[in-house]
């Protein structure tokens, strides 16, 4: 089969970007989407042109490195599928594919389809952890955890940090990513001691990174390759309100406003 690609090309963060059209002939339907790009890139390189830069690593849907918007859908048309696991058989002969990078102020374009997602790392650094100093742990079976809780925590922990939620959100909001981590840790006994501090500082960092706000569109869930559910956002909202209003018990009077 053959497809036409309209690809966003941008030399670096500062440069002007534009769409460039490429023809991909003899595409094999068994190819993955990224393998199709590989083939296009090989021929570009041999013609002395710069290949299309795109992020990828594991190519099996788990590292969260890959991710482009294909015909208006982050990671492409297939549900619960990362770009690297999308196969060309999901398209048909003669299709025109518009390929764009994630679009968000907090995810500046680095080159072509590659964006800078370190904002996610900074949200994590703000509190996305349990402060369990290495060596100090008690036996793993000391605290039994209801299966439903740990399964639910696992549902949230399955987030691969790809950023498709931000890309899909009409408001470029990072609520789903942040809520997934807050819920993962908040659902487990190990996460309780820092639960309030965590939600306060992670949300503060999320806002400071310049993501949009959530108006409950639900596009993030629909685009999420790991089907992280928006119910976690509701969970985070509740946690946040509780945390804010119960904060600073020891600073008389100033309960509000100090993280």
């Amino acid at each position: 089969m053959r497809v036409t690609l309209k690809v966003w090309r941008q030399k670096d963060a500062k440069a002007e970007g534009r769409f460039v059209t490429y023809e991909a002939s003899e595409v094999n339907p068994e190819m993955s989407f990224l393998e199709m790009l590989d083939v296009v890139n090989e021929s570009l390189a041999l013609e002395g042109e710069d290949p299309i830069a795109f992020d990828h690593d594991c190519r099996e849907g788990i590292c969260g490195t890959c991710g482009v918007v294909i015909n208006g859908r982050p990671h492409g048309p297939r549900e619960r599928t990362t770009a690297c696991q999308l196969h060309m058989r999901s398209f048909s002969d003669g299709d025109v594919l518009t390929i764009e990078p994630w679009r968000a102020d907090a995810f500046p374009v680095v080159r072509d389809l590659v964006v800078d997602r370190t904002a996610f790392d900074r949200i994590m650094a703000a509190g996305g952890f349990v402060s369990a100093t290495i060596g100090g742990a008690q036996d793993g079976n000391t605290i039994p955890i209801p299966k439903e809780d740990s399964d639910l925590a696992m549902d949230a922990a399955a987030c691969i940090g790809c950023g498709a939620c931000v890309a899909a959100c009409p408001n470029a909001s990072a609520m789903l990513f942040t809520a997934a981590k807050i819920s993962h840790l908040g659902l487990l006994p190990q996460g309780q001691p820092e639960r309030s501090e965590r939600v306060r500082s992670m949300v503060a960092r999320m806002d400071a990174e310049g993501f949009g706000t959530c108006t409950n569109h639900g596009e993030c869930e629909a685009a999420c390759p790991k089907a992280i559910r928006v119910e976690f956002i509701a969970r985070m909202n509740a946690d946040f309100v509780r945390a804010k209003f119960t904060a600073g018990r020891r600073e008389s009077g100033l309960a509000e406003g100090n993280g």
Partner: peptide, 22 residues
């Protein structure tokens, strides 16, 4: 042995049985 303990303390959601044990 310590690895498992450490991971559980970090909040790694290992599979569990209905009794709540690993």
């Amino acid at each position: 042995v310590n690895i498992i303990d450490q991971c559980v303390a970090q909040g790694v959601p290992f599979a569990r049985e209905y009794g709540g044990l690993l």
